[in-house]
């Protein structure tokens, strides 16, 4: 059986005067890791809580496969979720915590031990959670999510509080889940944290969808950047100005936004400008993310044409397009 997709359809949540989630629609496909991205307060956690039946939407609906989460006979077996890294009773041991939730997802105590081992906490099984570090709590949260070996995995900010080694470990796990065909949704307020592990991105800000596509399609929207060093800095600045390139001084040279190395090389050659360095910079996807999630979204730079339809296999928005 194919793991279920997740569907968010016209989802809206009003908290008093605040519209936390505003007519949000997207889908999450199996066999891939989808990054659910947006700045803090964008409505990510509220959306996940509505998806998991903890919070009631003001309007719209969410589906796990063919029905809402709460309508599954044993939803904990279908979706493994880790929402808050600190939601443990401090007096319970790590193993005790898992054993508490084991009956309702239908797993044995042996499975609790196995999962604890899988997340690298077997040494702390009998230790009270109150003494756990933030990273250990993240691992325990993940162990809780994985208890029933579920086809769908939803993690809210799983890299918070993890050391670099832990972040690398999470990345590997996420890739492994996707390779196993599971549906994986991971939220983060930092695109860079998940960039290495996601296939698709859903970007929201102020409760609204700003972008949904594959990561590749997002990268194509990002403007190229090139680092240039010329002995005659003034002439280089003039050249950039005459072409309308945005520049940022860096060390001895300039970072030119919106132009590729061949473009700059050709322009410099034509105007007889001597260059000492011409280096392609990685596409600044974080900058694009920043732009997409700004209070008032601005359209992507004209240099790269915005896709008319979200390229498959990205998650297709049900309604509307990039805003």
């Amino acid at each position: 059986m194919t793991p279920p997709s997740l569907v968010v359809d016209g989802l809206t949540k009003q908290f008093g005067p605040l519209r936390a989630v505003d007519d949000l629609s997207f889908q999450v496909r199996p066999g891939a890791v989808t990054g659910f991205l947006g700045p803090n307060g964008a409505g990510k956690t509220t959306t996940l809580r509505m998806l998991l039946g903890l919070t009631r939407p003001t309007a719209g609906r969410t589906l796990v496969g063919d029905r809402p989460y709460v309508d599954h006979p044993s939803p904990g077996r279908v979706v493994g979720a880790a929402l808050e890294a600190s939601s443990f009773h401090p007096g319970r041991t790590g193993l005790g915590h898992l054993e508490v939730f084991a009956p309702q997802v239908g797993v044995s105590r042996a499975r609790c031990r196995a999962v604890l081992e899988a997340v690298g906490l077997d040494h702390a099984a009998r230790q009270r959670v109150g003494g756990y570090s933030m990273g250990m709590r993240q691992r325990l949260g993940l162990a809780t999510a994985l208890l029933a070996d579920p086809p769908v995995i939803v993690l809210d900010e799983p890299t918070n509080g993890l050391d670099p080694e832990g972040i690398k470990w999470i990345r590997g796990l996420l890739r492994q889940f996707a390779a196993e065909g599971r549906t994986v949704l991971v939220s983060s307020h930092l695109l860079r944290e998940v960039e290495a592990s996601v296939d698709d991105v859903v970007i929201i800000a102020q409760g609204r969808l700003r972008h949904a596509s594959s990561l590749t399609a997002l990268r194509e929207q990002a403007s190229p950047a090139t680092y240039v060093v010329a002995p005659d800095a003034a002439a280089l600045a003039d050249l950039a100005r005459s072409h309308g390139w945005r520049t940022v001084p860096e060390r001895d040279g300039l970072v030119v936004d919106g132009a590729t190395a061949p473009e700059i090389g050709a322009a410099a050659y034509r105007s007889g400008l001597e260059l000492h360095e011409l280096t392609r910079r990685d596409v600044d996807i974080e900058e694009l993310f920043f732009r997409l999630t700004r209070a008032t979204p601005v359209p992507p730079p004209a240099a790269s044409p915005p896709p008319a339809t979200p390229p498959s296999p990205g998650p297709a928005p049900l309604k509307g397009d990039d805003r």
């Binding site: 989460y69 929402l83 600190s86 939601s87 009773h89």
Partner: peptide, 18 residues
Amino acid sequence: TTEFRHKTITQSLLVEPD
């Protein structure tokens, strides 16, 4: 009340939404 104090209510209702 410990469920609310330590927010374990979230996980409790995830596995038992009824």
